[in-house]
Design a protein around this nucleic acid. Sequence first.
DNA 1: GTCTATATTTAGATAGAC
DNA 2: GTCTATCTAAATATAGAC
Lengths: 194, 194
Amino acid sequence: MQNAVTNDRQRRILETALDLFTRRGYFNTSVHDIQRAADISIGSIYHHFGNKEGIAKALYDDLVAQMTEAVARIRERNKGLYQRGRAFIAYLFEMAETMPAAMNYILYARHREFMPGETPICSSKPFELVQDMVGEAMRAGEIKSQDPVIASAVIFGGAIRLIHLRLDGVLERPLSDCEADVWQCAWRSVAGAE
Amino acid sequence: MQNAVTNDRQRRILETALDLFTRRGYFNTSVHDIQRAADISIGSIYHHFGNKEGIAKALYDDLVAQMTEAVARIRERNKGLYQRGRAFIAYLFEMAETMPAAMNYILYARHREFMPGETPICSSKPFELVQDMVGEAMRAGEIKSQDPVIASAVIFGGAIRLIHLRLDGVLERPLSDCEADVWQCAWRSVAGAE
DNA sequence: GTCTATATTTAGATAGAC
DNA sequence: GTCTATCTAAATATAGAC
């Protein structure tokens, strides 16, 4: 992973790319499109990012780093999976509402199609951290014992699916409206060591 | 929607396209690639499907039709959401194992990126039917009353997430192994009118 | 309906001045 | 570091013989 991007110009390139990638898709966006929209020369773009994939990768690394930090903070500030899981979903829902393009990019972009070397998002750092929290809760007896992959999928699958629906315009009300309901259902599905 | 494809040649084109689209992605597959792999002339391909998007669309329509029929059959042969939902997940899991390319295409392809006019899969026919079943169960008091969109997401979100994980190679055991667990959790999350 | 050969466009990427 | 102008390869699509 390369250094975080600090330069203003680079930021503007990435923001523009994120916007275009999300609205039209990676393959329907040419570097020339980014150049036009960001009003920065194409030479400059290639100078900073090497090639088109470099733009996508920088964007991805940036967002994953942000998310990893957020998850770590959630873990720190909350005790137990009940609190932590709820906070995580709240974070995802808020991000989906305030930065839909970023959320869309992370969830949807099908990165492997244009970043061959990259691991799928679901096995990246932030999701590993979440899985760790689930395993921890299991050992503590907070939730019943089972395959942690399955447990994580069941706990967060509903919320993730709702985010997809929201980003696709199927769900019309903001996600925060159903946060409590979703978490209640999710928790009930795994709670109570029996 | 156009007529189903019956011709042998057309079938071979579609099968090849599905394979390539799934493994390399739509935009990394050229019509020439399909031509080579299917060993059918490019003129013939354009004759039948008009353009590249026409191939993707025929494929999509075909798979959605198959799935719609399957869901209708599930609805017919089972009573109550408990049986129906379980049968639906079993169907999805089996399809993911026996026709991973097809499942991948349906779930992942991000169709809207290359089929601008198409509705997202989650609001297509088969998913509508599933939502109807959920609503029906709610009115019958089989599950507690709430927004049917949320309920559907919670019930099937975990299973869908597991399919994603399986197709991405994160989950190593076949999906059938966790079918019972997943359904038990899913059902517990919404069951019991209270 | 099927084929080969070709036209057209546009993408990603580079060169080289400043 | 930034820019303009340009190169090159490859993709979609078509023409027209059979």
